[in-house]
Amino acid sequence: MLKIKDLYAGFDGKDILQGIDLEVKAGEVHAIMGPNGSGKSTLAAVIAGKDEYEVTRGYITFENEDISELDPEERAHKGIFLSFQYPVEIPGVSVTNFIKTAINETRKAKKQADMPAAEMLKMIKEKADMLEIDRKFLSRSLNEGFSGGEKKRNEIFQMAMLEPKLAILDETDSGLDIDALKVVANGVNKLKSEDNAIVVITHYQRLLDYIVPDFVHVLMNGKIVKSGTKELAYELEEKGYDWIKEELV
């Protein structure tokens, strides 16, 4: 589904990513771990197509199509979803209105008619229930005055509504208490299928107890330096990252 080959990217002429190779197939869950500043969030933003980053070498393909030159909304239309580490506030735009716009813009890009209101409402209700989201929450302005947990839950709610093929969860566990973490992880697990894939970016192994990865990659200085199975995450939790650094020397 997603293939990243020898990817160098960064901004102001400085590459933060220094030769990433990664392949994610449908039905898989990948975890990307690494110390602060290793380039995890940059990788997520580059896959999503954030303007300020420039790809200087290598390529990204999604379903066998090179997406390196596509606008972020075009990538979204193809089914790439990024759950933001710091979701932005949009005052005066309700959660419902926002998701409705997102869904219908995506449908429009695919030359489909707007989703009928009844269908939309039904879907909103279903997904909100699944994530234990209070209905009142849906009429609040997007992320305005939301707690850290509410913001993250709202991200996963949008993921549930948009039903992406590839979901990248950037530090979704940060700011969540254990109960909220369980709800969010539970939601993500329910959305998991043979046809979609999930990339979990995290500092800590904690989230991976609930969203169990098939593969774990360690990112350091803009490169994937070690890959393994979920046991690697436990090892990192126990020993930190230093031993990998030493291994590399």
């Binding site: 197509g49 909304e73 979204a76 239309h77 990024l82 932005v88 998701i99 716009t101 997102a102 890009a109």
Partner: peptide, 9 residues
């Protein structure tokens, strides 16, 4: 960018 990422031009 946030809107773009959700498919909104």
């Amino acid at each position: 960018f946030y809107c773009n990422q959700r498919g909104i031009e």
